[in-house]
Design a protein around this nucleic acid. Structure first.
Lengths: 79, 79
DNA sequence: TTGTAGACTGTAGTCGACA
DNA sequence: GTGTCGACTACAGTCTACA
């Protein structure tokens, strides 16, 4: 469960790994900075086209992001 | 481009392969039948939690669906 | 640099009915 | 079984501003 929270965690991790600020990621993905903030806190969840926009900005395939979310979800179910 | 259209095509193909009607898929994924119809026609695009709901109903990983969408997008860019 | 808040527009997603 | 239409509610996503 809690897909938004898993996605939130993955998104933040990927952004940090790319050494981007929320502002820079927002600019690269043509999204709003405050919206990136909300995504990283699990307040909102993206549509798939938003997912693809973020994946391009992060230089990672959208399918890989979803894979990471799946793994994160499984881990949360264990604990 | 045209993520919704690529997703639409993949969704319909996967549903047919699972020998499900739109009604049955809607029931399994706890979504509305008319909404499935709209997704398959590229009129709407899902959020990621809707994507996960559909993936469970179709017995396929969400990440694999996204992979198929990526491939479909590439093919459309060629032609 | 990030979180939050409020107000706004567009669309995700539901529901009933008819071809 | 599917497409479509109209009307509806909830949320995706923007923008300005302040801590």
């Amino acid at each position: 469960m809690a897909i938004e929270l898993s996605f939130a965690k993955i998104l933040k991790t990927l952004r940090i790994n790319n050494k981007l600020s929320q502002e820079e990621l927002a600019f690269r993905s043509n999204l709003d900075r405050t919206y990136i903030s909300m995504l990283e806190r699990g307040i909102h969840q993206p549509t798939i086209s938003t997912l693809f926009a973020l994946s391009k900005a992060l230089n990672i395939k959208a399918s890989v992001i979803i894979q990471l979310v799946e793994l994160e979800c499984e881990n949360k179910n264990e604990s």
